[in-house]
Design a protein around this nucleic acid. Structure first.
Lengths: 217, 217
DNA sequence: GCGGAACTGGGTCAGTTGACCAAGTATGCA
DNA sequence: TGCATACTTGGTCAACTGACCCAGTTCCGC
């Protein structure tokens, strides 16, 4: 009888839950299915989790945390301009979606699940806040890389960017039309880049910011 | 004992299913819940439907049909330019989303459900085809109204437009941030309008089209 | 006004679900 | 060494699910 600490068991169950959700959807993620995925008896589940709902809450927390730790797309060579930078970023994101469509679908399903679960709406919001934070960081990095500045508050553009990636992902998931998706990426890159302008004029100290890759406080 | 024809019963069940799905989600739309919503015994369900799956298929067909019959936003006064036309169209759409968020969520859930149901992926695609068709019609009407022409194939722009509305809707559903949504609308209208150009040069008869409000053949 | 077809609805079925108990076994501290 | 605490597990429970049977009722064409 391998003895596992309660916290390790929680982590294992969260991870198993994510696998099941990605593979078969939130609805199919029963306590039995999750326990079977994790290879442990059902009773262990209720030993470390109050209920299925508590597990689900833990799942979002985990997902959000992982997303915030996720590495921003590293540009191997500096992009020529903002249009190119945004396009590369979106292509990078889209490639990840194509590589693991179930994962993205799982994220959507989780958000939807919590929008519907009374008292858990804030979890759906939390998930999006993490998307926004990621977008802010990406936009800042892009501006640093190409030496441009954003003409609107970063948070505003970040929300638009998240909306664009959501639309891109959802439409592709439903149609699996790669060509249309890339046209959308080009369109979005063009439109977003238009919200920036060369920084030389207004920000003489710009090069200083180039080294910052993370999210400044 | 009120006697209802099988086809009427099917329609009633489809409608009840939609209500339940909108209110509580696809997962909660059990045959019992649907029958209770429709006020009829469960056996009637299986008299007119082979299975729950068949009902669900009928639900998409119904939704798609209704969408295709839906009236395009009628512009009370001619918009000044394409930017204005697209913005008005998106605002019109968004107002409908805000007025009945559950309905839009139900559409997303249905699409997701069919993406996951083996052998029913084409239904999700069908749903999106109907969105595309609607977008094509809207774009054509807009071009007629402002006397402009699209610089890319209508189908291409339509797919982009659907992606934009998806992103707009999904982000708003998760955050309920009206201000951000309207900023997104302005951004999208601007970007989409840029794909058109005044038609004067290529279409001298443009004023003729102004009166048509419906979908040209 | 009659006979067969169309429709009704109470009830049953096996399967699945979330929850949880009680009886165990290992662990760490005194 | 002993004992309280932490952890494990098979089994059980009521509630719910989709499916569907069948005896009864109503309708429509003749």
């Amino acid at each position: 009888m391998t003895r596992i600490s309660a916290s390790e068991r929680r982590a294992a169950l969260v991870s198993a839950a994510l696998s099941v959700i990605a593979r078969e959807g939130v609805a199919a993620a029963s306590t039995r299915a999750i326990c079977s995925e994790a290879g442990m008896p059902q009773a262990s589940f209720h030993y470390v989790f109050e209920s299925r709902d508590e597990l689900m809450r833990e799942v979002v927390r985990h997902v959000v945390e992982r997303e915030e730790r996720s590495i921003l797309p590293a540009m191997s060579s500096a992009p020529a301009d903002m249009r190119e930078a945004v396009r590369r970023g979106l292509r990078h994101y889209f490639a990840a979606v194509v590589a693991d469509p179930d994962h993205e679908r799982a994220m959507f399903e989780l958000a939807q699940h919590f929008q519907r679960t009374p008292g858990a709406e804030h979890l759906a919001r939390m998930q999006y806040e993490s998307y926004f934070a990621l977008a802010v960081a990406s936009l800042r990095t892009a501006a640093d890389l190409v030496g441009a500045r954003w003409m609107r508050p970063l948070e505003e553009i970040a929300r638009i960017l998240v909306g664009l990636t959501d639309g891109l992902t959802l439409t592709w998931l439903a149609t699996r039309d790669d060509v249309a998706a890339h046209r959308f990426i080009d369109f979005a890159a063009d439109a977003v880049a238009r919200l920036s302008e060369p920084a030389a004029a207004s920000s003489p100290h710009e090069p200083d910011g180039v080294h910052r890759a993370g999210i400044p406080a």
